[in-house]
Amino acid sequence: MIARVFIPLLLIIILPDVYLWLHRLRRPVYSWAERLLWLAPSALMIVFSSILAVSPSFVPDDIYWARLYIALLGVWVVPKLVYVLCSAIGLAICRLAHSRRNWGRLVGMGLAGYMVYAFVYGYTIGFADIEVKHVTLAVDNLPKEFDGLRVAHLSDAHVGTYTGRRAQILSRAVDSTLAQHPDLICFTGDIQNVKPAELEPVMPMLARLKAPLGVYSVLGNHDYATYLGGTDEERSRAEQRLCQMERGLGWHLLLNDNCVIRRGSDSIFIAGMENDGEPPFPSRGDVGKTMRGIPAGAFTLMLEHDPSSWTRTILPHSTAQVTLSGHTHGGQIELFGLRFTQLRQRHDLGLYREGQRWLYVNAGLGGVVPMRYHVNPEITIITLTTNKS
């Protein structure tokens, strides 16, 4: 995980201290002991970053170290960076305005304090604050017997993060889903962080997810063992093991496949396409194979982990009326109404529509980093009704 962004991380650790040295710390008022005390945390972060960067796995085997690293970034490195940026901007304004009062420092202190608060809140309360959202869609071609169908949409559980006391969060998510009495449950990928062994402690918990019309799932980018060290053969075995475990839960795992659901004399189709991502994410999707055998005009609910596939593949090459996705986590953080995933994803969170076709992007339940701020862990209950207009 760290290796991919090692150089940018070093820069955000080092450059703020360079600025502070040039503009504050080198003043005679500070002793060498005070200077070393200030610089010591950054030195430790550089060492910590280097150790994690050489780890062969995307996440260390003991996830505690990844959590500690993220915590130090959140309460020390990032707030200090924000303060320095504000101070530098304020200094530039001072020089342009020939003023000696740098208001940027005061603004920077306030924003840095807010960043610390947001991180601590998100790391403790926010990650556990599960939200049940209700969405009603009036769709074309929905057979009469399925009018009012309740679909529970879950995504991005990343169960390896729910260790220790956090395990009760996943248990509450299961309870909350079942309490909604859905007709069917759909899971749109990323059940693990890195390896299938993460599922073993929570298999009984996940096996409780049942619905009258079944539980359906697809794989996400993390589920292909992409982030697992080792050989291609070892990663392939890990992927096969994960598929076996999902099926062992009683879930219908769809790998570029579809199945029919019947009620009375009516039927609909659930299609599940493998991850159809853009680099660096896996691209295993085959929409033609996924839709094979579905009659023209039949109502189809598509499951696809990566929402970028909707405009790239699903809209032009399928007839699926409703698509459910995840992957983005909604960025997990929203500050002042902005999410960083909006920079990369046209469809990053919530409901989208093109004509009479719909996409819903779920914010996910978990994440490799157990942190949420204004983007709650999400369970979505989607009620499908017949479009009578």
Rank of each mutant, 00 (worst) to 15 (best):
V5Y: 12
L9M: 15
I12W: 09
P16Y: 11
D17L: 12
D17H: 13
L20E: 06
W21C: 13
L22V: 06
L25T: 05
L25G: 04
Y30P: 09
Y30K: 08
L36G: 10
L39M: 13
S42D: 12
A53C: 07
V54M: 10
P60E: 04
I70S: 12
L73S: 09
V77R: 09
V77D: 06
P79V: 07
A88C: 04
L96E: 00
N102M: 01
Y117A: 08
H134N: 14
N141S: 15
R150L: 14
A157G: 04
T161I: 02
Y162P: 04
R165L: 10
R165P: 00
I169T: 14
S171F: 00
P182F: 10
D183P: 10
L184H: 11
I185S: 02
C186Q: 00
D190Q: 11
D190G: 11
I191P: 03
K195R: 14
E198P: 12
M203D: 02
P212W: 11
L213R: 09
D223F: 07
L228N: 03
L228R: 14
D232A: 15
E234G: 11
L242S: 06
L242P: 02
G250P: 00
L253N: 03
N256W: 10
I261V: 15
S265T: 14
F269V: 11
G272R: 01
E278N: 14
D286H: 12
K289C: 13
M291G: 05
P295W: 10
P295N: 12
M302G: 07
I314W: 01
G326C: 08
G326Y: 05
H327G: 06
Q332D: 03
L335I: 15
L343P: 01
H347G: 00
L349W: 10
G355M: 08
R357W: 08
W358D: 01
P377Q: 06
E378T: 01
E378K: 01
T380V: 14
I381M: 15
